[in-house]
Design a protein around this nucleic acid. Structure first.
Ligand SMILES: NC(=O)c1ccc[n+]([C@@H]2O[C@H](COP(=O)([O-])OP(=O)(O)OC[C@H]3O[C@@H](n4cnc5c(N)ncnc54)[C@H](O)[C@@H]3O)[C@@H](O)[C@H]2O)c1
Ligand SMILES: NC(=O)c1ccc[n+]([C@@H]2O[C@H](COP(=O)([O-])OP(=O)(O)OC[C@H]3O[C@@H](n4cnc5c(N)ncnc54)[C@H](O)[C@@H]3O)[C@@H](O)[C@H]2O)c1
Lengths: 227, 227
DNA sequence: ATTTAAATGTGAAAAGATTCACAAAACACA
DNA sequence: TGTGTTTTGTGAATCTTTTCACATTTAAAT
């Protein structure tokens, strides 16, 4: 019966990524030293949690002295092998694909979209910094740039088909913007981003809050993490 | 010390949204009846979990007979007061903002971006289906359309400032694409979408997997939900 | 009408995540 | 050098989520 395995990223790991991106920001504005509660404050978790997370991943600071920002970033980079560049491909140069291809923050974090692909020959002629290739050249480019991670930004109907092609070409990780759950082999991770669902959940929350001032019903559905 | 409350949406509620969008899709392709394992299969969770979630929200089906798709959708709509339209505003008509403003799926799910805003006077002249207003008209429009939810798609540096203006104007829910944690009062929910972090976590996963074939280290960091 | 098979629905058990609480370390200052 | 203060690091306790297991219901088959 088992068709595929859905990998869910541990909460603690997600938070570690938050800490990292927060540290980069703090570094940029000249902060040199942080305490567990500094990071807590910036990321919306508790200081206990920050320390517990660090403990889980074997990251240590200085008793009383907190953590050196540079040192901490370096430790995280090492643990997450993020010191080298990563080549990415993007499939589907439509609305969202084009905007993602122009997103500078990816590059700032050593993630380079080296090539994009589209079936539409018209899109392939687009003047853009990153080349837009025909789908027929997928494997060639993926091999050449040793790409392991891809972004899917094609319509829902084509998403599974494109995922299959990508996996065939050796891709091991996918960020999927199409609102479908892709079926992939166990060794290929998929991270689905469903913006409609995200927006709906906010609407739902706002609605619930407006209805029940008594927070009785709300309590049931939401958990407030205080700090 | 407490500055704000971070609301995290319950996992079960997120899954309920997945079930819903999945049911809509199944309905479109003509499916009339589903079982807990059908939904499990489509959404990547276990059948037990689907039933447990339904149980939590008081949704029932027919023993042996599964669930009627129409009936189930209706129950979800009722519970989530999603039968009426919701007006949304979007701030920042740059790369991602523009692509979001053109995203059809929002409308298909009764979420209408009624107006967009930008400080750049040039952007305000853009020919687009949805009007682009100056920030000075924020409160006026939000009041007129009774908007409660906003999308922030402005640069990191301006995000907090824009959030403050929105809250001033009566907004109660925010989807934030800027990679910063917004500080908001307890009754305003924020859903942060951080695409860099999402992409990084995929890269991290792929890397770990390639290093440790023994799955020993992996086991520590990822949890595989089978079904 | 009776049996069989296939689902649901839900307490109870297990696993996982968060918070608590406090000992240990280290800095500051007398 | 010693005393007080601040912050880390981590087991233990608590709280939440998921999985298990099975009684219950119902549709279909005989
Ligand atoms: N626009 C948004 O803001 C937004 C937001 C969230 C999710 N999405 C999702 O992202 C996907 C793309 O949305 P969009 O608005 O950019 O759509 P779009 O139609 O503007 O772009 C889709 C692109 O994919 C290309 N394409 C189609 N089939 C292909 C195939 N088999 N191989 C390669 N390329 C192919 C098309 O030529 C087109 O350029 C959809 O699944 C949508 O639901 C979009
Ligand atoms: N481009 C992407 O694919 C992408 C992906 C994820 C997240 N983001 C994030 O989304 C945000 C926008 O990214 P972008 O690439 O669209 O940037 P952009 O520069 O293309 O667009 C930003 C827009 O916001 C407007 N703006 C700036 N300050 C404003 C203010 N105070 N009030 C109103 N409008 C203001 C600008 O005029 C501009 O039109 C950034 O925070 C970015 O990190 C972008």
């Amino acid at each position: 019966m088992k068709r595929f395995t859905k990998h869910t990223i541990k909460n603690s790991l997600k938070r570690i990524f938050m800490y990292r991106s927060c540290l980069m920001r703090l570094k940029m504005i000249g902060v040199e030293k942080v305490y567990s509660y500094t990071l807590a404050d910036e990321t919306g978790v508790t200081a206990d949690q920050v320390r517990k997370d660090f403990s889980e991943y074997g990251i240590t600071g200085n008793k009383k002295g907190g953590y050196e920002v540079n040192d901490l970033i370096e430790k995280l980079e090492k643990i997450f092998h993020r010191n080298k560049d990563h080549n990415i491909v993007l499939i589907g140069m439509g609305n969202i694909g084009t905007s993602l291809s122009r997103y500078n923050n990816f590059i700032h974090r050593n993630m380079n979209i080296v090539a994009t692909f589209d079936i539409d020959p018209f899109k392939q002629k687009t003047r853009s910094e990153i080349p837009v290739y025909a789908m027929s050249r997928l494997k060639e480019i993926i091999d050449r740039f040793r790409v392991k991670v891809a972004i899917i930004a094609v319509p829902e109907i084509s998403a599974q088909e494109v995922a299959d092609e990508l996996i065939q070409a050796g891709i091991k990780g996918i960020i999927n913007f199409a609102p479908v759950l892709l079926k992939t082999p166990g060794d290929v991770i998929v991270n689905n981003i469903n913006l409609c669902d995200e927006l709906e959940s906010v609407i739902y929350y706002v609605h619930s809050q407006m209805k029940s001032t008594g927070a009785k019903n709300l309590e049931l559905l939401y958990r407030g993490m205080k700090y």
